[in-house]
Write a protein that binds this DNA or RNA. Structure first.
Lengths: 233, 233
DNA sequence: CGCATGCTTCGACACGTATCGAAGCATTGG
DNA sequence: CCAATGCTTCGATACGTGTCGAAGCATGCG
């Protein structure tokens, strides 16, 4: 009556990490298909659909169907404003975040981002390459392959000279939505991922994009970058 | 990193009706003791304490201990801003509100607001008195007792002429926090409530402030105001 | 000093819901 | 027309958490 009856209802819609990831992915005001939002949130299509349905019912999103795609968009700038305002309140770290099921955890831990490695493991590998000086961050969201890096990749069994860069370059910085950091993408990232598959370091898990690191994989990661499984959990 | 990591955590804190009620009660920037906030939210002291602890940990509130009271206050104007911004997004009605346990439901259904009747039943009775023309809303959050009203109260067994008004008047409008409407308070409300107790229409329930309406009570309420239990659930 | 008050902590319970797998509906493309 | 893609719906499960009762800790009052 006098006050705002559904603050809690609106806040509830924003109170889920997956939904925040989706909303954040839409902060630029453009519309994106459900699948992309599912990917951004690191959840399956079914889960994403459920979330999107709620956001839609709550009036935070609007949808536009085009062919077999459904494009979601923020309902207006006021939604973006609310997100920014909430963000300004943090850190609020002490409150523990919502738990994840084992499957969702797996997905966040290691997965294929289309055709290259993402998730915590992907980030860790990218960090390792940067620390060793094999890659350096460059402009336009690219990575530059250093001479030392070329040598290392070649020694690993890749013929870097033969890899054709796309118009976006040889190695791109891809924003990892679940970790909010950059991981290695582009032709170099694809080749590296393929190599890890071929060597038996990683395996596709039954669930769609998730990836399992094999014992051999952990051994390799530790040898080259000092990455240990425990440290990533 | 680049974006806001804990939007969900902050939103989660606001995503509960009880917490919103508490935060709303603090919107004026003044500090209030835990008990008052518990009452505002329509929950018990234990529950309120739990909520306040979380809001405190999340940085939405600050606390100041004074004697055996603990005064809570909004952590800053940015918190108030966030609440207002969220309110601007509504209605968002379609999303169903959080469920309540049977006890909390009882409290919201009927309870004593210090010494007068509140909750849905209290609101319904007040509405009934207004509809019958026994009371009329007046300025300064007061109710005016009409001649017809005086006659009715007297017939019910109250000597209205003998009731001494306080400096706030004979009958006050008290904002019901759980229903967000006004119910009858002031000396007239107190006397009416006492009468209902004396007549066996309502009974104090074991839980603190909750009130049970007896079968006889429902009969009386239906006869005089057409209030039925079913309609209030 | 003991009792009452105000608030918090502990323990237990019930209910939502976030999640995924599988199936179902559309639409596009061969 | 059939297969593939994109998304949603259905069903089942696991896990938090909001809730209260009872107990514990302070503080204040008689």
């Amino acid at each position: 009556m006098t006050t705002q009856p559904n603050i809690a209802a609106v806040a509830f819609l924003i109170a889920d990490p997956a939904r925040v990831a989706m909303l954040s992915a839409l902060l630029d005001g453009r519309a994106r298909p459900a699948g992309e939002l599912a990917y951004a949130a690191g959840v399956t299509a079914q889960t994403a659909s459920s979330h999107l349905g709620k956001l839609l019912a709550g009036g935070l999103l609007v949808v536009e169907t085009e062919g077999r795609h459904r494009y979601y968009r923020l309902a207006g700038s006021h939604v973006a404003l609310a997100l920014e305002t909430l963000a300004s309140i943090g850190p609020a770290e002490p409150v523990r975040r919502k738990p994840l099921t084992r499957d969702a955890r797996k997905l966040r831990f290691a997965r294929c981002c289309y055709d290259h490695l993402a998730g915590r493991v992907g980030i860790a590998v990218t960090h390792g390459l940067l620390e060793k000086g094999f890659l350096v961050a460059a402009e336009k969201k690219r990575f530059e392959l250093t001479p030392a890096g070329a040598e290392w990749f070649d020694r690993m069994g890749m013929n870097t000279a033969s890899i054709r860069p796309t118009r976006y370059g040889l190695a791109r910085q891809c924003l990892d939505w679940t970790e909010r950091e950059h991981h290695l993408a582009g032709p170099l990232g694809v080749h590296l991922t393929n190599l890890l598959f071929a060597e038996g370091c990683i395996r596709r898990s039954p669930s769609s994009r998730a990836v399992d690191v094999t014992p051999k994989g952990w051994k390799v990661l530790k040898e080259h970058f000092g990455i240990q499984e425990q440290a990533l959990l």
